[in-house]
Computed example of a mutant assay.
Amino acid sequence: MLFYQLFEPQSSTYTYLIADLKTKEAAIIDPVWETVDRDLKLISELGLYLMYILETHIHADHITGASEIRKNTMARTAVSALAEIDCADILLVDGQVLELGEKRIKAISTPGHTNACMSFLFEGMLFTGDSLLIRGTGRTDFQEGSASKLYESITQKLFTLPDDIQVYPAHDYHGISSTTIALEKELNPRIGKNRSKEDFQKIMDELQLAVPKKMHIALPANNVCGKSEVVKSMIESNLLGYKFTSSMAGGR
């Protein structure tokens, strides 16, 4: 098995590259527009055959690199069917299994942060997107968010997995790269120690979080899988407010 954890600093986003070393078939999880060149270079250097581009949800804080990576590889894009977008090649349902060489990726529906959140289980590793974070959880105040649904997703699905499962979220803002199911059941201040649903909902209701800075451009871009023509139009209109690498801004 091959595993890489990659980081995009502007949005504190983790992108993950996983593969079956025997067949060299690979998948990338939550790629970011700004780091597409880095990701494609790594895939090429390792001699991998990218089969899937997996999205844990429709992101509000960064633009996906899915469309650009898809153009440059044989990979198919995959997102929850509940996202209700037309650009994805595979619309995932709860429990669906994707074959990756001789290994398997299991999609687990974990709504709450958004209605279309998916976590992915692969070889003892759980990629939780924004559903379960390290000592935290995703917010539930927009994109059909629901504290009640998120509580059920974490306690009834994720926390029922083996304690030694390694947890890899889509973000971390404190310099920690991973956790385990056991640690989050014990130490997560929002939902650990068998916290009640009522207490969790109260905590989430009282959060006072700023709107993601890129939400106004990330959501429309991600609803078309980060289609390069749409993103480049935003760049030309100076709607993004930050710079991309020259190759991305100028096209391929």
Rank of each mutant, 00 (worst) to 15 (best):
M1C: 10
F3E: 11
F3I: 09
Q5C: 04
L6V: 09
E8R: 08
E8S: 10
S12C: 14
Y14K: 11
T15D: 01
A26N: 03
I29F: 07
D30V: 03
V32L: 03
E34Y: 10
V36K: 06
R38P: 00
L40V: 09
L40E: 04
K41I: 14
S44P: 05
L46W: 06
L46N: 12
G47Q: 08
G47A: 05
G47I: 08
L48F: 06
L48C: 05
Y49I: 13
I53P: 00
I53T: 02
I53N: 02
E55A: 15
T56G: 10
T56C: 14
T64G: 12
I69F: 01
R70F: 06
R70E: 09
N72M: 14
N72I: 07
N72R: 15
M74C: 09
M74V: 10
R76N: 08
R76E: 08
T77G: 05
V79C: 09
E84R: 15
I90Q: 02
L91R: 15
V93A: 07
R104W: 09
R104C: 01
A107Q: 05
H113D: 09
T114H: 06
N115S: 14
A116D: 13
C117H: 10
M118V: 11
M118Y: 01
S119V: 00
S119E: 01
F120K: 07
F120D: 02
L121W: 06
L126Y: 02
F127K: 04
D130Y: 12
T137E: 04
G138Y: 04
R139M: 12
F142N: 11
F142E: 08
Q143F: 04
G145T: 08
S146R: 02
S146F: 01
K149G: 01
I154H: 02
I154R: 09
T155C: 06
T155P: 00
Q156W: 00
L158G: 01
T160M: 12
D163A: 07
I165C: 00
P169K: 07
P169A: 06
H171C: 11
Y173T: 13
I176T: 15
I176F: 08
I181N: 01
I181V: 13
L187S: 14
N188R: 05
I191Y: 00
G192D: 04
G192Q: 06
K193W: 02
S196N: 02
E198L: 10
F200S: 05
I203P: 00
D205T: 09
D205N: 15
L207K: 12
L209V: 15
A210P: 11
K213N: 12
K213H: 10
H216S: 15
L219P: 09
G226C: 08
E229A: 15
I235Q: 13
N238Y: 12
L239M: 15
G241R: 11
G241Y: 10
F244P: 02
T245W: 03
M248Y: 13
G251K: 14
G251F: 07
